[in-house]
Design a protein around this nucleic acid. Structure first.
Lengths: 200, 200
DNA sequence: GTCTATAAAGCGATAGAC
DNA sequence: GTCTATCGCTTTATAGAC
């Protein structure tokens, strides 16, 4: 992929985080990316196509830093049975941090989910990312509680990821302080793990 | 309040559910309400003012049918200790139904939350409704588990309501079937109540 | 591939008659 | 209170030069 194209996508994520999907103006995007409006239409079909591509881009970027984080969580080459819960906690809390690129990704993600309610074209990308996310969390829950049935792990993972989105939305819309959102998330993990343990 | 004014607000809720807050066009609203564009500007300051009024209207309407539901859950004048959990379940599942006015309210609410990320003017309404909602759920949890500490009830209520919003968003954006969303919600209530019981 | 200039349409808002 | 007609800005999208 060309540098310019990528630069436009980066800029689009930034502008979406600032103005929202519906507030994104091609002109403002052009300024942010340092290119002309026409070039955006050269690289992307139209405004909607650009949004679809940006969603895919944001998803990939989120996966990328989740992977980095997971790698960083493993200091050596061994994976002791001790910290699987810590890793799960870190992965979920990763989206609840007031860092520029995290906030940008979370905001863009929330916008795209909200837009998908009215634009079925955006749903494919969204559903895919959601499935991957649930799968990952279910796997990590499985490491923590190997005896729990698969269906229970998936259900717990769906609850935890949906809760994460709910908390993230509240945080970003200013009705829940970040520290409380993080606390609720940590508690929820504890509650779900206890629930899975109780199934044995 | 005049009939016309109310009719416009009803129509606005319908159009928002169809197109989103950002997709609402005054012209489409006029058609939906069966009035002229000019009349909308006669009854409301401007587009933003109209949106604020509509969101307040939707909140009131939601409170109204929640209250009706609560009343319906009490067949006689007595409130036996038996079904407080059923009432809680009903109240939370009320927002996860494929009925026109529920879908309309949930969609409008989701839009309001999403818009508030970029428009601080909308946050007051949102925060207020959120606090009331958490308070209600915490009270009902308290009826089910009278010995649980207040702080634990509030934390559980915050998790449950945030989860509800997350599940609702997934349902409305087409990435989670309604039946699954309802199942996850029911399970979460069970998990949270068990958690509160475990604190004794 | 990238730009400048411009067409074309969309849309909020108002004037003025009834 | 309600309508028709219209203004004028904003924004998407394209034409055509380099």
């Amino acid at each position: 992929m060309s540098d310019r194209r990528t630069a436009i996508l980066e800029a689009a994520a930034t502008v979406i985080a600032r103005r929202g999907v519906r507030g994104l103006r091609v002109e403002e995007l052009a300024e942010e990316a340092g290119v002309s409006k026409a070039l955006i239409y050269y690289h992307f079909e139209d405004r909607t196509g650009l949004l679809r591509r940006t969603l895919a881009f944001v998803n990939n970027r989120a996966e990328r830093y989740t992977a980095e984080q997971a790698a960083a969580g493993q200091p050596a080459a061994e994976t002791p049975a001790g910290p699987p819960l810590r890793r799960l906690e870190q992965a979920l809390l990763l989206e609840l941090q007031d860092l520029p690129h995290v906030r940008e990704n979370s905001t863009a993600w929330g916008e795209l989910r909200a837009s998908a309610v009215f634009d079925p074209e955006l749903r494919g990308e969204l559903a895919l990312a959601s499935v991957i996310w649930v799968r990952e969390v279910a796997d990590q829950l499985g490491e923590a509680r190997p005896t729990a049935p698969e269906s229970a792990l998936t259900a717990s993972a769906e609850r935890l990821t949906a809760l994460l989105e709910g908390l993230s939305a509240r945080w970003l819309s200013g009705i829940l302080p970040l520290t409380e959102a993080r606390t609720r998330m940590r508690e929820a993990i504890g509650v779900e793990v206890a629930h899975l343990a109780g199934l044995d």
